[in-house]
Nucleic acid binder design. Structure first.
Lengths: 202, 202, 202, 202
DNA sequence: GATGAATGAGGGTTCATTCAT
DNA sequence: GATGAATGAACCCTCATTCAT
């Protein structure tokens, strides 16, 4: 039995509980719609699927990027947090990098249209872009540096371009079964691993 | 004043001349607009720039993809035709492949938004997609096979996925100066190249 | 006199104290917002500035007009109360009228968008309209009558139309520096002062 | 059977005839809607009343101001063109001014909400504003100058402020039968008129 | 054949107002 | 009483595509 103070706390919390539940409903709905129609799906569709009004969606997620970011925040976090552990546990720094990129690719490839959104030059996804890079680029950079330091990867490649290249390779995975991003990514990593033209490029 | 017969013939011929001229005007206009606003530019804009009606544009190019294809047909042709020559003239099959991919990348990277269009999963660009593959995939395949046969490239990579990977890497080149597709493509090719010393590939 | 009732009364009173404080907060906030964004500013903005919930605002001021009225009640009062004093103290009844209209114009011109609101034909400002007229029209009428009785103003002009005319002239003062309502109002008053067409109009 | 030239001309003209008819339909519909719901009425409503698509309306009148301007263009023209004639035909320059303002007021008062629109500080009506002033201010200025030169009107009043004052006085005519803009405008003009007997103004 | 006017679906966004907590 | 989340009507605007002339 709550005291008055607790009651107040409870009521304050219960209100928020509603909103939180709603927010979760929205996230779930958005996730489903993103899978079905891509991250560019009409806002209305998401609100409808969530069974809430348009305004509610706008209240919780003022821009589309906010919604996308929120939907994938957990996975971005997980990806970011996995980095150090991999570095510690893998057979070699390059292996850690490879495993991390596996995670990254899993993530991108699972989410319909997410890789596309990350490339969109419009500012509709600006904040998503920002969040992505802010969170993941340092992790990628650390792994890449370690591999370079260990002599396993060629120097001179920036984490930004690597992430973006990987991201690009993941675009449009659904459209044709003949295209499996992972195979191309494997090639890219192989190229990264190789010492720069071991004597016989020309 | 033409006679009836002459008039008919003349008018038919003159119309065709008109049509041809119109088509060329449209291609030129489209090329300009594509550069300025990407291959996704509003149809009207192209018609307006060409100084013809919308219907005329639609008559000549029923879908956007038809227009894009037509605009770049010459370059696609050139790219396709260059293949055999490179194979004959290059230091090695792999080198020929590399040079050909250079041409391909030049092409994609020059055309604002073309690489993006090639990935678009909508059917808006379906015929472009088709034409691209029909024409270039055999060429790429020939070069790739030669490199594999020569022991310079690892086997098991399909021309489709290679072309698509390259294409993907070219996406969004304009959006950030930190990203240069060619660097990633170089990595990919390095990964594709078979190591000189057998057994070292692991 | 209730005992148990005292407790109840006390709690009622404490709540009322809260409510009163809230009401004042809202009035202050509204005044600021009105200045910044006009009397048509979004309701939320006012609630937000006051740091109270939307419902609270609605409870205190069910319509926008109620809020506007309340915000400017003091000044309406002051304007109303100034009338008799001016009549007593001015050099002539017409001078008193002129001075009173000066006050009135000061008031309208200071409040961003208030003059506009007074004209709005929608019913959004109905109660404001009512309050304004109920309170000020008699005052204006008294001054006007006095000027007419003194032979200083032409007869036949109703206080309503005079106030409304003045109000109208104050609309949109901010939009163009070339327009100074007072100059036109001076003309209007000059016209009011003149005997009707001194000999040669008709 | 028309000749080729005629046919071409006819067909070109007939096409335009259609568009022109449509444009007229739109103007008529807009005029009706403006009367019924004011010049701020939803765009859709006008399109619907005209029985055309939204896009058609937008094609003909890209902004709301364009539509309003077009709807009232004839009357603006008539008003502008009447100026010189009045000056020539009236008993005195001031009389000409008075008559012209009568026309102006007739115009404003007839059009529901037009006077309001002219004050709107938003840019939604910017081009209307511009057109109004460009066309009418010179005319008003000419009449005013003439009256001043004839010693009938006091100097120092700008046509802009006069027109705007008149316009303001016309606002909201519909809302209350007690308010007749013309009575206030008459007062204003009386105030503008220079007293006959010099020295009596003082 | 060419034209471009017309169509209207489609998507974004704002805000007054209600009502469960 | 206070709160502010939810609602959804109401607007605006763009463009691909069709079709009468």
């Amino acid at each position: 039995m709550p005291t008055a103070g607790q009651a107040k706390g409870a009521s304050a919390r219960s209100k928020r509980a509603d909103a939180v539940r709603n927010q979760q409903t929205l996230l779930d709905a958005a996730a489903e719609v993103f899978v079905a129609s891509g991250v560019d799906a009409p806002i209305r569709e998401i609100a409808a699927r969530a069974g809430v009004g348009l305004g509610t969606l706008y209240r919780h997620f003022p821009t589309r990027a906010d919604l996308v970011t929120a939907v994938y925040r957990h996975q971005i976090e997980a990806c970011a947090e996995a980095g150090p552990g991999l570095l510690a546990g893998a057979a070699s720094p390059f292996d850690a990098l490879r495993q991390w990129i596996d995670l990254f690719v899993d993530f991108l490839v699972t989410k319909h249209g997410l890789a596309d959104a990350l490339q969109s030059d419009t500012d509709r996804f600006a904040s998503l872009h920002t969040h992505f890079l802010d969170r993941l680029m340092p992790v990628c950079g650390q792994l890449l540096d370690a591999a370079v330091d260990a002599g396993e990867a060629r120097a001179g490649i920036q984490p930004y371009e690597l992430m973006r290249g990987i991201g690009n390779l993941c675009i449009g995975r659904d459209s044709d079964p003949r295209y499996d991003p992972r195979r191309m990514i494997a090639l890219l990593l192989e190229g990264l691993r190789r010492p720069h033209s071991p004597g016989g490029d020309g």
